[in-house]
């Protein structure tokens, strides 16, 4: 797996990344919880004929939490997949410039659009105290929807950290 060690150190960016990783690694245990919830559901349903819709819903809640917060973590570990056909042979300086332009023109607009529009989305859900569409499902639907703006904030932060890192490296010219 791609490791962060491939990125040259830049103090401020490093501490932001480390913070995001620390938070991320605690959220990541949602997946262990997910394994346990699935096992519980299977045992309850087949063993005791009492599967629960709440557990079914909890499964995708946990998965969604893992996926959404993972985005910023994968950004700090530089894991997002690139087509490296030409990229791998670029000079470091070219890579920095591409990274900076890519973040400014593509990533930040994309993340901002999701963040801004998610606010209304969450607010509406919170205003009416949205519940699962199944009467026997989980309450507080707005809570899982809140994951969208929060995770986008973290992703935005991780992206800005990367922007800062590449800008510093570009001007330091240590290519």
């Amino acid at each position: 797996m791609n490791e962060q060690s491939s990125l040259p150190p830049v103090p401020l960016a490093d501490s932001i990344d480390r913070a995001i990783q620390r938070i991320g690694l605690s959220i990541a245990w949602a997946y262990v919880l997910l394994v346990l919830v699935i096992m519980t559901q299977v045992i309850l349903r087949k063993g005791f004929s009492s599967g629960l819709i709440v557990l079914e819903e909890l499964q995708w809640h946990l998965y969604a939490v893992g996926v959404m917060f993972g985005l910023s973590y994968a950004q700090t570990t530089n894991s997002h997949i690139r087509v490296d056909l030409f990229y791998s042979s670029f000079r470091a300086r070219t890579k920095h410039i591409i990274e900076i332009l890519g973040i400014l023109i593509l990533v930040l607009p994309f993340v901002s659009v999701i963040f801004i529009h998610s606010l209304d989305f969450v607010h509406d859900s919170w205003r009416i105290n949205e519940h699962s569409e199944s009467p026997s499902g989980l309450p507080w639907r707005w809570l899982i929807k809140t994951v969208i703006p929060l995770s986008m904030l973290m992703l935005g932060l991780a992206v800005l950290s990367r922007l800062y890192r590449d800008t510093v490296l570009l001007f330091k010219g240590n290519a």
């Binding site: 004929s49 599967g51 079914e56 199944s134 009467p135």
Partner: peptide, 25 residues
């Protein structure tokens, strides 16, 4: 009906649960 696992949607699912059916959607 008791002990069956059944796919059921909406308000009807709440009724089935009271009948002892384990519902999923």
């Amino acid at each position: 009906l008791k002990g069956l696992n059944m796919r059921f949607f909406g308000l009807g699912a709440s009724v089935m649960e009271k009948m002892g059916v384990s519902t999923s959607q």
